[in-house]
């Protein structure tokens, strides 16, 4: 039991930390877009590099922040039945959901993307546009990285649900 608790706590800490970092990217992407617009309109200056940076940041946000979003129960549910359930039934739904949906789903994305990412690293894939950001191989790596974070958070969710099922009290972060 203690082991599960420790494990969950570590995962929650990890994704909280990652989430804090990724959150900044949202402010940065707003700033980058705005500066791009102003520079182009007022000074007729524009860089392929910064234009690509806009959507690189966007991709970074939604992949790397997804684990934290799961921690905060931010992935939307159809809660017609769920909201009427007791905490124990909810824990069962989450536990089984993690086993049958989340873990296989994450495995599917991680396993299939490894080769995809490996191929990009082999040629150090960059932008096809001259002046673009030469790090597409890193950007592509966020796919498995993001889903590893989701997977870990899913294991934490499963662990916490198991403890609830077994009737062990646990301080849950972000459950609602």
């Amino acid at each position: 039991m203690g082991l599960i608790k420790t494990f969950c706590r570590w995962i929650d800490k990890l994704n909280t930390w990652v989430g804090h970092v990724v959150a900044w990217a949202t402010a940065i992407v707003v700033a980058v877009v705005f500066i791009d617009v102003i520079m182009r309109y007022a000074f007729n200056i524009s860089f392929v590099f910064t234009q690509e940076l806009e959507w690189h940041l966007f991709a970074f946000i939604f992949l790397m922040g997804a684990g934290y979003t799961l921690l905060k129960d931010g992935h939307v549910r159809v809660d017609i039945i769920y909201q009427r359930c007791s905490p124990k039934t909810k824990a069962w739904i989450n536990f089984l959901g993690v086993i049958f949906f989340l873990i296989p789903g994450c495995y599917m994305v991680i396993a299939t993307s490894l080769n995809f990412v490996y191929n990009a690293w082999v040629v150090m894939e960059g932008s096809p546009d001259p002046g673009g950001i030469p790090y597409r191989f890193i950007l592509k790596s966020f796919i498995p990285a993001g889903f590893v974070l989701i997977l870990l958070q899913g294991l934490s969710l499963g662990g916490k649900s198991l403890l609830t099922i077994l009737g062990k009290e646990i301080e849950t972060e972000g459950e609602r």
């Binding site: 182009r40 007729n44 200056i45 524009s46 392929v48 234009q51 690509e52 096809p128 546009d129 001259p130 002046g131």
Partner: peptide, 25 residues
Amino acid sequence: YKGLKMRIPGLGGKVISKAGGTVVL
């Protein structure tokens, strides 16, 4: 071409930016 804002990808775009143009994606 100086300050001209043009959507032109690839090598053509690079030539335009060498000419002082602004390549917009």
